[in-house]
Simulated scan of single mutants.
Amino acid sequence: MDTGEMDHLIEKKLSSTELFKGRLLHAYRDVVSLPDGSQATREYVVHPGAVMVVPLLEDASGSTRVVLERQFRYPVGRVMVEFPAGKLDAGESCFACAQRELREETGFTARQWAHAGVLHPLIAYSTEFIDIWFARGLQMGPRNLEEGELLDVFTATPDELLDGCRQGLVTDGKTLTAALWLQNVLSGNWPLDWQDAA
């Protein structure tokens, strides 16, 4: 896809004011210069970035199931179905974070990994990005949840996941994006470059 010339769309920061600094989120209000010479205000949240893992459980017959989680998400007040995910620690690579989150949340480690892409879930008001990884050759081990982290781990077929998306049972944006990736990977339309875990 040709995105064309973009200089006429670029905004430039003139000043920045810190609004809030918490354990996870850091909010700012910036004054920017618009391409037409006028000025505007932009409020946004700085986020360290995150990863999401699409774990594939494959059996001897060639059938595939995906590993999912159920977790209560306080801001929306409901239990959500999601793929394993979590934020980057300071200085941590996306791949190391993906391996850590899969192991901590589900107990699984993976023999092979493939980087699928990057998702920007909140482009209007956050710097957050989510690095998307696929994992296969799963081996079960102990979970190591963080204090206060309560979640159920379960498996579903790809068709069951897609049906949950269609019915509105799965509404988490990153998981909906992962379902699109999964559908295209399994159909052969979006091949992955699988690498052995280091």
Rank of each mutant, 00 (worst) to 15 (best):
V45Q: 07
V46L: 09
V46W: 06
H47M: 09
H47W: 00
H47P: 07
H47D: 13
P48M: 11
G49Q: 07
V51M: 10
V51Y: 06
V53D: 00
V53Y: 00
V53F: 00
V54L: 07
V54Y: 02
P55R: 09
L56F: 03
L57H: 01
L57Y: 02
E58V: 02
D59N: 15
A60H: 05
A60P: 06
S61I: 10
S61P: 04
G62M: 05
G62R: 10
G62W: 01
S63T: 12
T64A: 03
R65I: 02
R65Y: 02
R65L: 05
R65A: 05
V66I: 09
V67K: 06
V67D: 03
V67E: 01
L68C: 10
R70T: 03
R70Y: 00
R70G: 03
R70M: 09
R70L: 04
Q71L: 12
Q71H: 11
Q71Y: 01
F72G: 06
F72P: 05
F72N: 07
R73L: 08
R73E: 03
R73V: 14
R73A: 08
R73C: 02
R73Y: 08
Y74C: 10
Y74V: 14
P75W: 02
P75Q: 02
V76C: 03
G77Y: 02
G77W: 01
R78K: 15
V79G: 04
M80L: 09
M80H: 03
V81I: 15
E82S: 15
F83N: 14
F83P: 13
F83M: 14
P84H: 02
P84L: 02
A85W: 05
A85K: 13
A85D: 08
A85S: 11
A85P: 04
A85N: 13
G86R: 01
G86D: 01
G86L: 04
K87N: 13
K87L: 14
K87A: 14
L88T: 11
D89I: 10
D89H: 13
G91Y: 02
G91F: 00
E92P: 09
C94G: 07
C94R: 11
F95D: 12
F95C: 12
F95V: 15
A96Y: 00
C97R: 03
Q99Y: 02
Q99C: 09
E101H: 12
E101Q: 15
E101F: 11
L102E: 12
L102C: 06
L102R: 05
R103A: 13
R103W: 00
R103H: 13
T106W: 04
T106D: 02
G107Q: 05
G107S: 01
F108Y: 12
F108E: 05
F108K: 08
F108C: 07
T109P: 00
A110C: 06
R111E: 05
R111A: 07
R111P: 06
Q112Y: 10
W113G: 06
W113V: 10
A114C: 03
A114K: 07
H115E: 11
H115N: 11
H115P: 05
A116G: 10
A116Y: 08
A116Q: 15
A116R: 13
G117I: 14
G117W: 07
V118Q: 10
L119R: 12
L119K: 06
H120I: 13
H120M: 11
P121M: 06
P121E: 04
L122V: 09
I123C: 08
I123Q: 09
I123F: 01
A124S: 12
Y125D: 12
S126D: 09
S126N: 12
S126F: 01
T127D: 08
E128K: 04
F129P: 09
I130Y: 00
D131R: 07
D131Y: 01
